[in-house]
């Protein structure tokens, strides 16, 4: 007779110990094999997040509203106004979304890069660096110079005259500047790519 309940002899494994170990091993193997499926459920990176495709020479068009897709004219803007724009033909990629702002050329202070501005026009990425919402414009009617960029989601505030520096709220870094200039025919054209990282910094 074998007493299956008693402890095995020194150096021996009882039937019960073996059965217990065997079940544990099988369960561990099964769970482990299922875990590997999690990898399949998370598609691999495609290149990641916001990758802008805007380039020097792209024309600026309205990103929304009744004039969506139309070319912008410098004459359509007064200082203190802002609009969302896309590079012409590249509106399928949200990373290209830009907020074009018109101020007075004399207002620009560092870290704004003056060589990327023209006739009071300055442009920044419109994707908030906090959690990726599209920034808006808070226009001060009495004092256009006091207007600023604000993200509607968590109220990050950016100073357009100072290189979109974060003035308040949770955004970790400024919006990236992008070069614009007014052409001879009054339309606007991009003169560079983004000066820094765009989109959420996570």
């Amino acid at each position: 007779m074998v007493d299956t309940n008693s402890e095995g002899r020194e150096g021996h494994v009882t039937r019960r110990q073996f059965a217990r170990g065997f079940v544990l091993a099988v369960v561990a193997a099964a769970v482990g094999s299922v875990l590997s499926f999690l990898k399949l459920l998370a598609p691999s990176k495609k290149g990641g997040g916001y990758v802008a495709t805007v380039s020097r020479g792209d024309l600026l068009v309205y990103a929304r509203g009744s004039r969506m897709g139309n070319l912008l004219k410098a004459s359509e803007f007064e200082p203190g106004e802002a609009v969302l724009v896309y590079p012409k033909g590249k509106s399928g990629n949200e990373a290209n979304l830009v907020q074009l702002i018109r101020l007075e050329q004399s207002e620009f202070k560092p870290p704004t890069r003056p060589e990327l501005t023209d006739q009071g026009f300055v442009a920044y990425s419109a994707i908030c660096t906090h959690l990726g919402c599209i920034v808006g414009w808070v226009k001060d009617k009495k004092d256009p110079e006091a207007s600023y960029t604000e993200c509607p989601c968590h109220n990050s505030i950016f100073n357009p005259a100072r290189g979109a520096t974060v003035m308040g709220g949770p955004a970790p870094i400024p919006l990236a500047q992008i070069g614009v200039k007014v052409s001879r025919d009054g339309t606007l054209v991009f003169t560079s790519g983004f000066s820094g990282p765009i989109g959420p910094q996570v």
């Binding site: 970790p172 959420p200 910094q201 996570v202």
Partner: peptide, 22 residues
């Protein structure tokens, strides 16, 4: 709560950046 975290609050631990979003 997300609105209250200042943007420059961020901690780095063992290669991970814990920013205001986290």
């Amino acid at each position: 709560f997300l609105k209250l975290i200042p943007g420059d609050l961020s901690i780095s631990i063992a290669g991970a950046k814990i920013g205001p979003e986290a």
